[in-house]
């Protein structure tokens, strides 16, 4: 059974690139450009891992992470956040996310982090 990864980023090029890379590695990948409201954005996706951008237009990544980590059903889904801002990591302390990676990143680094979590 393929592992499902949900990627949320407002840059379609990054979504496309990551999707191609990860699908190549036999992951099932879903992408989202933005989250309009929290309640139904997962919409039965039940991913095994979420990769989330820190700065999104609309609702920002930090709020999404906080929501997911405070919700019973989604609390267990591991989250990796990425950002062009290396010090976003500091701000994300306490949100309960599993890992953080700075943009631009090496694919190998991201894969290492994914493999550690699922």
């Amino acid at each position: 059974m393929k592992k499902k990864i949900l990627i949320i980023d407002d840059d379609p090029a990054i979504l496309e690139a990551l999707k191609l890379c990860l699908e190549d590695l036999k992951y099932e990948v879903k992408t989202l450009e933005k989250v309009v409201n929290f309640d139904n954005f997962l919409n039965g996706l039940s991913p095994d891992l979420i990769i989330l951008d820190y700065l999104l237009s609309g609702v920002d990544g930090k709020q999404i992470a906080q929501y997911l980590k405070s919700n019973k059903e989604t609390r267990r889904i591991p989250i990796i956040m990425f950002s062009a801002h290396p010090f976003a990591k500091k701000e994300l302390k306490g949100t309960g996310i599993e890992d953080f990676i700075t943009k631009p990143f090496e694919l190998e680094d991201l894969l290492g982090k994914i493999k550690k979590l699922i």
């Binding site: 990054i14 690139a17 890379c21 062009a84 943009k103 631009p104």
Partner: peptide
């Protein structure tokens, strides 16, 4: 610099994918 960083990130991913293939 922030605007430049975004395309660089995705180009890098595409190139890595291409290298792999």
């Amino acid at each position: 610099s922030h605007e430049l960083k975004t395309p660089v990130t995705s180009i890098k991913l595409f190139v890595e994918l291409l290298q792999k293939k």
